[in-house]
Structure formats: C-alpha cells, structure tokens
Design a protein around this nucleic acid. Structure first.
Lengths: 154, 154
DNA sequence: ATTGATAATGAGAATCAATATCAATAAGGA
DNA sequence: TCCTTATTGATATTGATTCTCATTATCAAT
C-alpha cells in the first residue's frame, strides 16, 4: 500500500471523525467507488460497484452513507429526471472542474459543460446575495440545468 | 355561466383537440383546479381539490392528465426536494409573472422571486444558444433553483 | 489487549409516489 | 343513432427509498 493511499485514507478518516462519524470499511469502499468513476451513479449503481470488492456491504448502508456524504457536502445529489437520485463527488474532491449539466430528455445522456460557467457563477452569486437579503434566506445550494434532446434523439 | 367562462372552456377544448385529445369533464376539472390556486400542488393535492366537486374522478386520471398537460407545455413540473412532483400552470396560462424558485430545505417553504429574473433569463438564453451549437442539443427547458434555510428555520 | 457504550450494519419489511392493467364508459365522427 | 376508440376508475404493481431490529464493529477508556 502506497504512502499516498494511506494519506488519503487518513484525510477521509479525519473528515468523518471531525463530523462525529466513525470511519468504517463500508464508508471507505463507497468513497472509493465514487472516486473511481466520472459517472453520475445512482445508489444502486454505487451498491453494485461496491459489491465487486466487498460483497457483504448492503444497499441500506449505501443509502445511509450517501445521505451522510451529501450532508457533509462531500457529495452532490442530482435529479436528471429519471426518477432516482444521482450522485457525484463535490468539485473539491474530484478531478472535474466546476460544471453544470445538460440532459437529454429522451436517452438520458448527460453533458457536463464548463464553457459558460464563469458568467453563470457570477450571476448566481449576485442573485444569491440579493435573495438572501430580500427574503432572509441562508442559501447554501443552487441548481442550474438545461433539458432538451441530444443530436441522436432529435 | 358567463360569456368569459364559455370562451375559456372552448379555448381549452380547442387546445386539447388540436393535440388529438378529447375534451372531458375530468380534464376540465383538473385545469380548473390548477387555475384556481397559486400553490404548487402535488398530484394528490390536485386530486383532493378535484374531488370536492367531482368525487368520481380517480387519482390515476389526475396523474394521466398532468402528464398530458406537461407534454403540452401547459403545466410545468418541479422538484422541490420533497420526493414528489409539483405542478404549476405555465406562465402564459397563469396570472403570475415569470419567476424562479427559492426553497427552504427544512420546512419546504417556496418563494417565487421575480426580482433578478431579467439578468437570469438573458444569461440563460445566451448559454442555451451556446450549448445548442456546441453540443447539438435542441434545448427546450431549464431549471434554476436556490436552496437554503428560511428565516424561521435558520 | 480488553472492555463497554454505542454507532454502524445487513437483511428484509414497510412506505409511498407513480405506473400499468383491464373491463366499463364516454366522446365524437359517420 | 351507431361505431370506433380514447378515456376512465378501481385496483394491483412497481421501484426507489426508508425503516426496523437484532447483530456486529468502532474506539475511547481502562
């Protein structure tokens, strides 16, 4: 086992314990699964991925852990219109740049675009500030998504 | 019955028949229910509202009709994070101005804001155009929403 | 290393919004 | 009025997610 892996392990461990959670094999495996793909996995897909190495981990544990990770803002949960939550590591834990999503209503294909993000973020921040003040909300999250038909499905 | 009501009835009838659908009492009642509130009703809430005047209309019909209305772009469907679809009449069929939503993650309160819409729309249109070209998508829908905690829930 | 409090877990049952089935009914053109 | 067929209500079913509960694992204190 490499030095790097140990270091990563203890970072995650620290993050969990810092939030009052224990550090367990299941949690490690689930984070590994999320880290090792660029897909937007559903809970069941995470379960299947995790099963390959650790067949004893149950589906309920996957759901519970994902809930915790979302609460820790380590994982983001998305709704792409296919009737199940889909998960992806938050920007700072992933290799991906900040992006938003463009979803095909027919085949479900998801494009992660980064091209127009700059202006979007800027506007979102401004709007967020305005909304916070006017409506007394403490805003901690936003969604921007586009829906349509991809080339094939048009 | 007023002249206006008759006229509205036939407008809706025309819209349905123009799409190859029949015009039925159930559909009329469901549209009335959607028109007579500013809430974001769930399918079950629409069902309850409709039941008061037409107790024979079934829940399945409500779901089916809402699906059709969404397909006709008469009704918009939203996900506010409470695990059920919520519906509202599209802008051109409602008294409301174009707005986006700000949702409390705790109590579920939904604020419809219109203040910052101008810039948002402009940016969305621009982004939409850029995405269409670059990714060959025919975009027909977008979502912008903010999530946080309202004053009470902070 | 052992212990004890308790957090986490797996298996499976339960929940609940949404969808599918199917026989009966209603819409609307001929 | 008749006929075709879309629509409907009742109800069963699905499928993602959550809950329950007995068992196990974590980890701070010993």
């Amino acid at each position: 086992m490499s030095c790097r892996r140990e270091k990563e392990g203890s970072e995650w461990e620290g993050r969990f314990r810092g939030c009052g959670y224990r550090w367990t094999l299941s949690r490690q495996a689930i984070i590994e699964a999320l880290s090792s793909t660029s897909d937007h996995m559903s809970a069941e897909e995470v379960y299947n991925a995790v099963q390959k190495k650790h067949s004893s981990i149950g589906l309920a544990t996957v759901y519970r852990t994902l809930e915790i990770l979302v609460g820790m803002a380590v994982v983001l949960s998305f709704d792409f219109g296919d009737k199940r939550a889909r998960y992806e590591l938050a920007e700072r834990f992933s290799k991906k740049d900040h992006h938003h999503h463009l979803v095909c209503n027919d085949c479900g294909k998801v494009v992660e675009y980064t091209e127009f993000i700059g202006d979007e973020i800027e506007l979102l921040n401004k709007t967020e500030k305005g909304l916070s003040k006017k409506y007394n909300f403490k805003i901690d999250n936003h969604v921007i998504q586009f829906y349509g038909l991809c080339k094939k499905c048009q």
